[in-house]
Amino acid sequence: MTSLSAESLPVETSEHVVSVRQAVRRRAVELGFSLVDQTKIITAASELARNAIQHGGGGEVIIETIALQGRRGLRLAFADRGPGIADVARAMTDGYSTAGGLGLGLSGAKRLSHEFAIEAAPGTGTRVVIVRWK
């Protein structure tokens, strides 16, 4: 995988959720994503950014344009400073929420992405990486 360009944005406040959405949209448009693909990756970014704030006490996201074997895509890596997740499998279940939300953030973001990875050992914060290919 080659990184073509990357930027890092803070994810601390609900205004940052909006700025992350806008940055992701800009790159998705640059990459020539279809409108549906743009909408999917922006929505996934919005869910993960809000999760990082509500559950992780904030953090950052690295938004990266990548290439692999002639394909180009968008990679988003969210890292927060929170307590991590004790039971990742349970957190990935639709409807499971510890914050009174709908419990669709992680599972929904996974469905809206082509690749999804999560590292969330207790005590080290949570890191979620998603990729959507063009």
């Binding site: 549906v36 929505t43 669709l104 469905r111």
Partner: peptide
């Protein structure tokens, strides 16, 4: 609602 939004919303699980 935009069609792309509707598609995404359903895939999100809402």
């Amino acid at each position: 609602m935009q069609p792309a939004v509707a598609i995404t919303l359903v895939e999100l699980g809402m």
